[in-house]
Write a protein that binds this DNA or RNA. Structure first.
Lengths: 332, 332
DNA sequence: CCGTTGCGGTATATCGTTATACCGAACTGC
DNA sequence: GCAGTTCGGTATAACGATATACCGCAACGG
């Protein structure tokens, strides 16, 4: 592969001039510019990003580290981030943190982080200490609902309000005996804790009782079994708040497994507004996490951080809004 | 951030010795090794991957380029690849090719590809010429159903057999008037063409007629409208082959929109075996693309390519198997 | 006692860029 | 006519690793 020197020789100029042309730096004459571009064309030259990165310290690439690739939530977020970053001339590269314990350490190592201009770290499933250990010279923005060291920029969702809205919606649609699948107070303000708090606030406000059935993994299969079992034990349940849409799929299936009808017998609402929710059964009502809001904040924030702007750690909370579909009843 | 020189100074050895220790190269004494590791610890040194990459030409990272992050098919494949690669000490980094036309060019540029030890390129949505233009010194493995330049390693699915199995299964369950949603002969052996061929082979074998309703985007929403419309025009349809599971979701919804029952009135089978298919309604019957098979082939192949082994371009076809769930009837 | 071998370790060049400083020629203003 | 700018361009030294070649010393065989 040709290098910049080859191009310089071909065009009869110095390497710096080639570099200047390729980076649109000012001090280069029109005629020279053409000669260089011509030589680039003839040799099929393309820049070596590794060398550029080493010398300049910038790579043009933003890293996004997610716990897993095969969860639609991250896929949908990543897709939107990629588009938004592309618009600012940056490039998104996504890594999975929990392919193995070993690979998690590696993905979070200073060495790996340093290959990016900035890192977006989805903290779901990470521990406070894992993140606190992070040493890095590059900007890091945390994403997701988990308590984390305050020295980082951190964007999260308004879990409590979202859960409150979801639950209130169930109640307004006539539910009187409510069940939350997933969730439970974990003793610190995690996603699970905060959504449970919101669930309980809505119940309290309405003077109703409800119960929480925690599950270990937020997977459809686990939720399905848990909800079916519970509905058989406790047939009066007429409203289920699923902690995520992924859990919600399982809840819909579990309601059917128990021989009941979604909506008419048991209303169901999820959380996350994943794309498939629109087409499952008559649609899964849910809480929208405002990905677009998050994405534009993130892009703005890393722009400023990369530019070296000094500002205190930003802790932002994105709004949660209710999306009504066929798994719940409208009030009245 | 400390560099290798700092560590060398701290330990009272040369940089090469530090490098030798850190890379587990033989020619270093036990005592020296300890001194170096100790210095590394004290300084909190981590290697600069960019510098290593520049000098050695290897990065330890494999790139996976997918058309979009927000499609579960790629998420599921990427997750399995990440795990399998982690086991061989490599690291997976995923990029999206179609965030914008601009970013597609960039993702496929020699410059970008050169930052990886090998590149896995999902060719769905790419044109023959886009891929044919690819110039790269690194191994590239193509993934997916699309006709592509034969000089590349290429893994695809046995689309024809998969579609045949799906269709035969519908027929065995009693379907007599079949409809394929998505698909159509595109004039070259694309995924759409091959799945359509398989569909038609099964029909021919059974002496039945069927029709194909192409759709532009393989999205639930488009499929839903298309299938509902068709079922109203043509009420006798009792079996639908959806070209993908994603389309299948839409078909299930469309069948209900048309006032019919999935399975009892209209059997439905999809393709891809996406995770959510197990929990939608009573489960969506589908064709499994043998991701595990693909993943182990890919890992093996890039191992050999990276080792510099010379072998002719590998064109492999993964087996397709039927997964029966609640959207179809068992024969008899 | 001397040539050889092997072990532990080092000096130096190099990967392909960009940052920095500097330089010569042409132009400007007075 | 000369100092001061501006413009176009270059030489050189990094960035932080690794590849290569080489070196000193102890052990060893004959």
């Amino acid at each position: 592969m040709p290098t910049m020197s080859d191009v310089a020789a071909e065009a009869g100029v110095s390497v710096m001039t080639v570099s200047n042309v390729l980076n649109d730096r000012p001090k280069v004459g029109a005629a020279t510019k053409l000669r260089v571009l011509d030589a680039v064309e003839r040799l099929g030259y393309e820049i070596n990003l590794t060398a550029r990165g080493l010398r300049s310290g910038r790579t043009g690439t933003i890293g996004l580290i997610v716990p897993r690739f095969d969860h639609p939530y991250f896929g949908e977020l990543a897709a939107k981030l990629a588009v938004a970053l592309a618009a600012t001339g940056r490039h998104l590269s996504v890594e999975q943190s929990n392919a193995s314990p070993e690979s998690e350490r590696e993905a979070l190592s200073q060495a790996r982080l340093a290959t990016y201009d900035a890192v977006l770290l989805s903290v779901v499933g990470l521990h406070y200490d894992d993140v606190d250990r992070l040493r890095t010279s590059k900007p890091v923005v945390l994403l997701g609902e988990q308590q984390m060291p305050p020295r980082f920029d951190h964007l999260q969702l308004d879990n409590e309000t979202g859960a409150y809205l979801a639950t209130r919606h169930l109640i307004e649609g006539g539910a009187r005996k409510l069940l939350m699948i997933g969730g439970g107070d974990e003793g610190f303000p995690s996603m699970s804790t905060m959504r449970t708090v919101g669930f309980e606030r809505a119940l309290r406000e309405a003077g109703l009782q409800g119960s929480v059935r925690p599950i270990i993994r937020y997977e459809p299969a686990d939720a399905r079994v848990a909800v079916a079992e519970r509905l058989r034990q406790d047939p009066g349940v007429d409203g289920v708040f699923a902690i995520t849409d992924q859990v919600g799929i399982g809840v819909l299936a579990g309601v059917r497994d128990a021989g009941l009808r979604v909506r008419d017998d048991v209303q169901v609402v999820g959380f996350d507004n994943l794309a498939f929710g629109e087409h499952i059964d008559d649609g899964l009502s849910t809480i929208d996490p405002s990905h677009d809001w998050v994405v534009s904040r993130v892009v703005e924030l890393i722009d400023r951080r990369i530019a070296g702007e000094q500002l205190p750690p930003q802790h932002l909370t994105s709004p949660a809004t209710l999306v009504v579909r066929g798994s719940t009843r409208l009030p009245g």
